[in-house]
Simulated assay, not measured.
Amino acid sequence: MDNSFKFNPYEALKSILEITSYYIGDEFIKHTAIEIKKLFHADLVYITKAIDFNPTTKVQILYSTNDKVPNIIDLNGIPGKFVFDNKIIKIKEHVKYNFLDLLDEKFESFYGIPITDGKNICVGHIAIYSKLIRELPDEINDIALIYSRKIEREIRRIELEKENQLIRNQLQELTITDTLTSLYNRRYFAKVCSDVFAQVNRDSTKATLAYIDIDNFKSINDIFGHEGGDEVLKYFAEILLENTRKGLDFVFRLGGEEFCVISIDNSLESANEHMNRIMNITLDKFSLTRFGKITLSIGIVEFNKGFSSYEEILSLADKKMYQAKKSGKNTIVK
């Protein structure tokens, strides 16, 4: 049986370029693999990116036409390894590798195309498997290499987009995070408090706001200096994070030695118990440090539909916190 390809390689390149021209990034990689599978009459196609270099021993699958192919492939002992010598590899005999056992299929030919960057370094490869022994026309080699360079550009586009997204995420963190304690900052507090206020007014959600002030903080700065004061703030922030519920409690540093905890699905009594625990833990932990006894004054308010705005809730919590200070500090007013 003649299993050679019966199509014009240049027309094939034109066809695949036209079809994939509508896509970029991950979608381009996906549709490229799908179209190569069709054009080469293949049974499995995947496109990879090198994980390590000099030599490349492992690759990450960017897209595979069979989802049973593992996300990471070890190249040792398989022909794909030799593709990373910048060579097109053709094998016309029974192809058997460990990871192919997962597919429960037998392949009789392999065609590997290097994906090279601008410095002619192999950064990935296209792997094409067939259940039939294929005789490939020589012209396909040049066509495949030309197209592989376009794939490399899309891989770079994907990597650049990931880097840009990471930068965007970091910038977003900077806009909502207090630089000293890594807690949420006052700007983000306004958004969360507003959102919770709206949620409480829409349905029967319960929520509380605890306004916390570290007692005698000026004396701490006077005795230990501002570096010591910063150390106290950071350690207290850690205590708050360790003793709040992820996803339900939002912890903020409002400025100076003032902190706030907004708790979702929480009653006034539960918030009071929670803040009592925070006070006791703070006292115990700081007693073991050079700073000695650290106490807190706390005002707690429960969100309800009687308030006209979230600012009103914050103002009341602030007043209750100052009442706690006037009552001798180291106490809670609710």
Rank of each mutant, 00 (worst) to 15 (best):
30 K>H: 06
67 D>R: 09
231 E>F: 03
227 E>W: 02
247 G>K: 10
152 E>C: 12
235 Y>M: 14
301 V>T: 13
206 K>N: 13
20 T>K: 11
32 T>W: 09
143 I>L: 11
2 D>G: 09
289 T>F: 02
169 N>L: 13
230 D>E: 15
218 K>T: 13
245 R>Y: 04
88 I>A: 01
310 Y>T: 08
212 I>W: 03
82 F>S: 14
244 T>P: 03
166 L>I: 10
296 L>G: 03
315 S>H: 14
299 G>E: 11
3 N>T: 14
75 L>D: 12
12 A>H: 05
97 Y>Q: 11
207 A>N: 08
190 A>V: 04
30 K>A: 03
13 L>E: 10
191 K>N: 10
17 L>H: 07
5 F>D: 02
189 F>S: 01
193 C>P: 02
30 K>R: 15
156 R>S: 11
286 F>D: 00
309 S>K: 11
68 K>C: 00
147 Y>F: 15
122 C>G: 07
3 N>S: 09
160 L>V: 11
276 N>S: 10
321 M>T: 14
319 K>R: 12
181 T>D: 06
276 N>Q: 13
122 C>T: 15
174 L>N: 09
263 S>R: 15
57 T>M: 07
201 N>P: 01
54 N>C: 00
85 D>H: 10
300 I>L: 05
291 F>E: 04
332 I>E: 13
209 L>A: 08
102 L>V: 04
269 E>I: 08
114 P>L: 00
302 E>W: 03
60 Q>E: 15
303 F>W: 08
258 E>A: 04
43 D>L: 02
325 K>Q: 13
135 E>P: 03
128 I>N: 04
269 E>A: 07
209 L>H: 09
242 E>G: 15
90 K>T: 12
298 I>G: 02
164 N>G: 01
52 D>L: 06
307 F>V: 08
311 E>M: 13
150 K>E: 13
219 S>W: 06
74 D>C: 07
60 Q>T: 02
228 G>T: 14
215 D>Q: 10
61 I>D: 02
232 V>P: 03
36 I>E: 05
107 F>V: 07
152 E>S: 14
78 I>F: 03
88 I>F: 02
269 E>M: 05
271 A>T: 09
221 N>F: 10
180 L>Y: 11
189 F>W: 03
119 K>S: 10
239 I>C: 07
169 N>F: 10
333 V>Q: 14
284 D>Q: 12
318 D>S: 09
180 L>P: 06
303 F>P: 04
150 K>N: 14
311 E>R: 13
259 F>Y: 15
38 K>H: 09
70 P>M: 01
131 K>M: 07
174 L>Q: 15
1 M>G: 14
74 D>I: 07
10 Y>V: 07
35 E>W: 03
325 K>H: 12
83 V>T: 15
50 A>I: 00
63 Y>N: 05
26 D>P: 00
60 Q>W: 00
321 M>H: 11
180 L>V: 05
288 L>Y: 04
6 K>H: 07
220 I>N: 14
